[in-house]
Design a protein around this nucleic acid. Sequence first.
DNA 1: CCCGCGCATCGACAGTATCGATGAGTTCGC
DNA 2: GCGAACTCATCGATACTGTCGATGCGCGGG
Lengths: 297, 297
Amino acid sequence: MIDVRRLEALVALHRTGTVSAAAEQLHYGQPTISHHLRRLEAETGSVLLQRVGRGLRLTPDGERLAQRGEEVLALLARAEAELTASTSLQAGQIRLAAFPSAAATLVPAAVVLLRERHPGLALDLTEAEPPEAAAMLRAGTVDLALTFAYPDQAEPGGVGSVTVHEDPLYLVAPRGLDLGDGPVDLGRFADTRWVTGCERCRRELLALCDAAGFTPEIAFASDDYVAVQSLVASGLGVTVLPGLALRAHRNPDVVRRRVPGAARRIQVTTYGAPPHPAAVDAVAAVLSEVARRRAES
Amino acid sequence: MIDVRRLEALVALHRTGTVSAAAEQLHYGQPTISHHLRRLEAETGSVLLQRVGRGLRLTPDGERLAQRGEEVLALLARAEAELTASTSLQAGQIRLAAFPSAAATLVPAAVVLLRERHPGLALDLTEAEPPEAAAMLRAGTVDLALTFAYPDQAEPGGVGSVTVHEDPLYLVAPRGLDLGDGPVDLGRFADTRWVTGCERCRRELLALCDAAGFTPEIAFASDDYVAVQSLVASGLGVTVLPGLALRAHRNPDVVRRRVPGAARRIQVTTYGAPPHPAAVDAVAAVLSEVARRRAES
DNA sequence: CCCGCGCATCGACAGTATCGATGAGTTCGC
DNA sequence: GCGAACTCATCGATACTGTCGATGCGCGGG
């Protein structure tokens, strides 16, 4: 493989016309350029240069190689510039996975903030529930994920998460139902029919009801929080939904009350251990800040 | 500037998936690849790799850089291949300057022979009288030239010539003129009107006539040997033409006789001193051989 | 004819590419 | 659950070479 430094010397010679000028342009000494040129000829087994008077001239082969070399150097410079742009957060494409209610709430806000802070960074969003998101991180399909986890839930392997928000859970009931004031007791709904969300949410619901001393009768399950609210509004039963889902969409025919002590953790999840690429850290920071603002409001 | 060897390590890692396999592919030890990757990250200030389990994975930045690196390596390989092809005479474009009568005789024969010997080499012909040809060699416009010189003529500076053929000179007269047998004596035409060729040929003609004891009356001058023969055929006068010009074109209405001891040297002229690029030497050799064959026939 | 300019050569030094040996962390199988 | 095997990181040693300053050589200009 041709040594690029030698090519650089040839290109500089081609540009400047003399070895000394080439050396100056590259901030080298003149013997260094001479050395590289001689080695380049020896290593390629070609005649690239010709002494003429007190100067040098490129042979046709040398001329063509210098042109090729210019392309190579340009491509290298371009690659370096791209990398620098990405490292300095002036450019880049970050692929983000987020669960539906975050995709509808946190992500749009994060996009706005990211555009403000790092105009060159672009987000590419994919909707995915936490287990899929972890799998996508492992597979390298996405660079970053917004996930959630319920208390005492183990983290999937290979990924690292930082909790950025505690998302309280709400009991959601049809509008006609009088929930009274103060904290709500799930036990009141032991004999009511229930609607529940995705697999993981259903497990958490079962745990909550178990703590309240009963086993709920599940009438319907859907991971679509809009559909779930519609079912509740139509009087099919009650449900428990996290705050973000209710913020993303609020059916006017349902009422809600916080379930004391019940919450899920909203997490920014990355693959592997730090350090992460600067762009990944930047997007993670923006997501954290958006979540924190949401928590304060 | 990014070091290409480090890029190579990154590309190999990208291709193979593990450092060890990359090392094997590049015929290096594993610590060498590790070293290059670490240095690449340090020198670019980027996070390109991530430890995962007992292996490594490329970050998005690393992935992009690996792709760019692949392009760079491909371009380098291509440049090297082109150069090798040229050096081994499998490809190449040689620019040749030749004076008109050689362009019409020697060059076509050389093209045929060249195509036979080195099918990859291509000739690019420019017509030029010897002084122009020397200037073009000096300017780098052509790589090789066919020139001619009369005896005692000094060689222009910066170029080197090898004589490949002695081209005899002929007295050319209208068909009706009886030239008799045996060597022709220019003195016979002291009172005839003369036609002559280019500047240099005219000087040689004057020298020949001077040696024969008279000064010719020049009725017409043209560097076009076809036109000169037409003028002679129409009875305007007589002329002296070299063998190649008569071989390139022979007006049926003229007769010729050798001028004893008069000849011009046909030369292959190159720029500067050897060594020359292999392709230049190859074309020069073919031109020499064609000229030698012509001399023998 | 001599001076200046440009390249080649030489010797020396520093930087580093490379390797083998070894250590640390992870995965897999028994 | 523990050991074996695998993968990468680290370390020290060595040889290579990129780089420079000094100097020699050849050519062109004053």
